[in-house]
Design a protein around this nucleic acid. Structure first.
Lengths: 151, 151
DNA sequence: GCGCGATTTGAATACCAGTATCATTTAGAT
DNA sequence: ATCTAAATGATACTGGTATTCAAATCGCGC
């Protein structure tokens, strides 16, 4: 898991530091959308010390490098997900916070329809679906406790 | 325009105050997505005085009452649009900030496909498309000046 | 119209995610 | 091992939003 992150980081040509590696691998491990400060806590627990600023900076890097994606949580907080394979859209389970990927192809027809019917050139869409995943829906036995809604 | 807002407010059963009416009608008039502080300025210009806190509180009210919707602008700022009819998705022009509504029907097939293929129950989707509207695309002669990007 | 209690307002202030600054440290090329 | 550009961490700061609380006000019953 750490190796995955390390490899991915090196391929982008950005400088490899222990902090960045720690952040990337923690993020890659969870498979969930995680806020910067949650990551800060997590990384600190296993990595001796890391500054808040570094977490924010590294996450920005990961996003610009295309290794992570930023989501907006309600309450003006950014959350991040490891997203090596390129941009796409997400199904985010509000119970367990797990993120599934949604293929670009599934969305393309909609964007085209909009361009055609409204004469609107779509540059960017926030296309994230919140709901309940299969696992949580079918008797959420082993599911971790739902987080309290932010508002 | 003011009457529209007033009527809508009264129907929700919340108490009618001049401040709330002012905020609602200014929001209803613009047809654009507007941040809380932009609204604060606007309302102050025509309404003698209003406190910042009141603007935030009133906007929260409007959102919970279903009369407005909250969007997330980049930079952790909320923007609001008047949204009486319960429309839920939007085409937001990044040049003139005008908001067009996107019919629920246009999106429904996508949500169904997701439910079917991923076993994922979609509760809520942020489905806002950012781009350039017809007017701005076709020689944006009469278009208002583009706002400076937030970041 | 008048009074009254609950609600709302405004001012100040707290809050909090995120950003800027800057001296110190470090990655990685030579 | 040396060197330089880049990264880090401590700290202070920002700007949007939330909270608090005394004062003002809505709107209901009379």
């Amino acid at each position: 898991m750490i190796e995955t992150a390390q490899l991915a980081l090196q391929q982008t040509g950005i400088r490899l530091t222990p902090q960045r590696l720690a952040i990337a691998s923690v993020l890659a491990q969870t498979g969930k959308e995680t806020s910067a400060l949650e990551l800060y806590e997590r990384v600190r627990r296993r990595h001796a010390y890391i500054g808040r600023a570094t977490v924010f900076r590294s996450l920005d890097m990961l996003v610009t490098a295309g290794l992570a994606q930023r989501l907006e949580r309600p309450g003006h907080v950014s959350a991040y997900i490891w997203c090596e394979a390129g941009h796409h859209h997400h199904l985010i389970c509000t119970t367990c916070r797990t993120v599934e990927d949604l293929d670009e192809d599934a969305v393309a027809p909609l964007a085209e329809a909009i361009a055609r019917e409204h004469g609107f050139r779509v540059d960017h869409a926030t296309l994230d679906f919140y709901g309940e995943c299969r696992t949580c829906a079918s008797g959420n036995a082993g599911a971790p406790p739902a987080r309290r809604p932010t508002r």
